[in-house]
Nucleic acid binder design. Structure first.
Lengths: 156, 156
DNA sequence: GGTAGTTAGTTGCTTGTTCAACTAACAGTG
DNA sequence: CACTGTTAGTTGAACAAGCAACTAACTACC
């Protein structure tokens, strides 16, 4: 199989994408840890729960929404449960399943963290882009997700 | 300070970007670990060295090119040195500095890993996008990098 | 030419992620 | 209704990343 290398334009875009992928998590984590004592992934878990009916989701469903593996999520939720931000209970309908539910303290934590987080996202990402670019970004990322996540696990 | 929330278009794009940032590292790491025994970050370090004059770079310069902190790079380079893919030597011009140099074995490792890696990048990212989208992605990521990396540490 | 401040890099420790192995429960089939 | 296979989730160990503290060397200034 012969290799088809990237042309200049492709390589330039790829290197920049890699840079963003490398830098963005640190920027998000730093602000949230400082201001809310949460990693971005923890925040995202709480935020997904906060938007779910009954503030409750099955672990599998939560893993899909947060793009995490089940083991990773399981560890994180256990730590969040230790901090009483989340509560875990066996699912009544399916004995194998576990429901994760956002506690009142967890809700308060999300509400408290959200404004600073959104401001940070604006400052570093959204406000830097024109509305047209936001649309392009949406299209491009949607396309990539189909390839990165072939089972289309992302919530519609 | 009142919060200016994201509108629907912004939120959609943001959530997808976060998903890509979460999923892409795993896709890159999995292929490279399986086929070459390297993480993507290790590969990228070796690749940056392979393109440098004398296959050598100062640690600081290498950290900039790989978007890594110095402590992180230091650990990774030590492990790469243990595997004899990289060699570290004090810089003659500046006693504080360290030069990292790609060994012949390191060069071979990059050369062996590159085709599979490029194919993977094509399959999951580049080939999914039109040339116009590649250009848009380049522009958007360049804009974000200015915000994420204000010291413009990225190599020009 | 000593002293203060900065820059380059490493190291230890704590934390988080991944991988593989495991348990338990459900679904389908003979 | 046992038996096979699959799905849901947890756990433990290995490994990687981030942070803070540290050493060493260079620069500049009085």
């Amino acid at each position: 199989m012969d290799t088809v290398w990237l042309n200049d334009a492709q390589r330039a875009a790829w290197v920049k994408l890699v840079a963003v992928v490398e830098l963005l998590p640190g920027v998000l984590d730093t602000q949230l840890r400082r201001d809310a004592g949460l990693t971005h992934f923890e925040y995202f878990v709480l935020a997904m729960l906060s938007e779910a009916p009954e503030r409750t989701l099955r672990m599998t469903s939560l893993a899909e929404r947060t793009n995490a593996t089940l083991p990773r999520l399981s560890h994180v939720v256990r730590r969040l449960e230790d901090r009483e931000l989340v509560q875990r209970r066996p699912c009544p309908e399916d004995g194998r399943a576990t429901n994760a539910r956002l506690t009142d303290a967890g809700w308060s934590a999300v509400v408290a963290a959200a404004p600073g987080h959104v401001a940070n996202v604006r400052r570093h990402v959204i406000d830097a882009l024109s509305p047209a670019q936001v649309g392009q970004l949406d299209d491009i990322m949607a396309t990539l997700l189909e390839r990165l996540d072939p089972d289309a696990r992302m919530a519609p």
